[in-house]
């Protein structure tokens, strides 16, 4: 474990209890997050990216079973020392967990339209987060909220704190959500597809904001996305997930320069690049469909869609191989015999 790791996850497994039985969604997920970096977790819709993060923050319902060898958060104390919080032992609503949520670890969600409670004023909603973790008067809290709004670029903050969510545009709403997430100055921010529901220009603004947070305030950001373009622009580290498993991890440069896993390379190829495609050329797609998580397969999850599939891929566990320092791939192609 490196010194500046802020979050360490080992063998995280999350399953859901349904009428059809217990369905595993996240399987044996391992990753480390370096303090002050942006980790992008990419993959198709339904590959388990959100569930992974929600498992860590314990935001899943009662029908979820979360097991892990370790979920460790390195909390930086006021005097500079590091305290390890073993999150896997905490329950969803315990005081320790709630002390973490909102204060140390914050999450922002995909759809800003529905992320805010429609019946309360935004100022109050942000204040709530602040007052949960700090003792201060309402006036002080409101002052801080207004300050935050300014920082995030929300115009006329003194009046806007008294508006309701429906009086904001999408981009502004997302800023409010970020305000809620950042008001307590958390060290780790998890952004679950924060710009998917917004249009491109706003998208750029929000991402710029996030990068600023990382650079100016040394925040760590985990960015969940399926937009490779965003990853290329902002991410330091990348983890690729497919069907609940992390199939490749590495730095952004490594992944883009040398996509090792067949799925990763397929993903790279399927992104349309403006101006870089020949006329008449078809958009590359990955053949087949994302399988249903119910259908538990033996062997590699990507086997039936992989053009490099071999017999040994269809059964048994696939090991994790380091092909470059810090660049891991879960694929039999890289097996050292």
């Amino acid at each position: 474990m490196e010194e500046n790791t802020i979050l360490r996850v080992r063998k995280l497994n999350t399953s859901f209890k349904t009428e059809d039985g217990i369905i595993p969604i996240v399987k044996d997920v391992d990753f480390d997050v370096k303090r002050g970096s942006i980790l992008a977790i990419v993959g198709e819709s339904g590959c388990g990216k959100s569930v992974t993060m929600n498992s860590i923050c314990r935001l899943l319902g009662k029908n979820a079973e979360i097991q892990a060898e370790a979920i460790d958060y390195m909390q930086q104390e006021a005097d500079g020392s590091i305290r390890t919080v073993h999150m896997k032992d905490l329950t969803n609503t315990s005081k320790e967990m709630r002390a973490l949520r909102g204060k140390e670890i914050s999450m922002i969600f995909q759809d800003p339209m529905s992320s805010l409670n429609p019946v309360y004023k935004v100022g109050r909603q942000v204040m709530e987060a602040l007052l949960q973790h700090n003792k201060m008067s309402k006036q002080e809290a409101m002052a801080r909220v207004i300050e935050m709004f300014k920082q995030l670029g929300i115009p006329d903050p003194e009046n806007r704190v008294n508006n309701y969510p429906f009086e904001f545009s999408g981009g502004m709403k997302q800023r409010v959500v970020i305000a809620i997430a950042m008001i307590n100055n958390p060290q780790l921010l998890i952004a679950d597809e924060p710009t998917t529901a917004l249009d491109v220009t706003i998208q750029a603004q929000i991402m710029e904001l996030m990068v600023r947070l990382k650079e100016e305030q040394q925040k760590t950001i985990i960015l969940i996305t399926h937009n490779m373009g965003l990853v290329a622009e902002t991410a330091d580290e990348v983890a690729v997930m497919y069907m609940g498993r992390v199939v490749e991890t590495g730095s952004a440069d490594q992944i883009f320069a040398n996509p090792a896993h067949p799925y990763t390379s397929a993903l790279m190829q399927s992104v349309p690049v403006l101006g870089a495609m020949e006329e008449g050329k078809e958009l590359a797609t990955i053949p087949g469909q994302t399988p249903n998580p119910k259908d538990v397969t033996d062997g590699c999850e990507f086997a039936n869609r992989c053009d490099k599939c071999m017999e040994c891929c269809k059964t048994g566990l696939v090991g994790n191989h380091e092909i470059e320092p810090g660049h891991f791939v879960r694929c039999h192609l890289y097996r050292k015999s």
Binding site: T93, R101, S115, L116, I180, A181
Partner: peptide, 26 residues
């Protein structure tokens, strides 16, 4: 099941507050 309940939980507030202040009124 709405997202704002997740947001509320995310702030670290107690379950009781989530149910009464955030969920009930809606």
């Amino acid at each position: 099941n709405r997202d704002y309940i997740k947001t509320a939980r995310m702030k670290g507030i107690s379950e009781r507050r989530v149910y009464i202040t955030h969920a009930l009124r809606n």
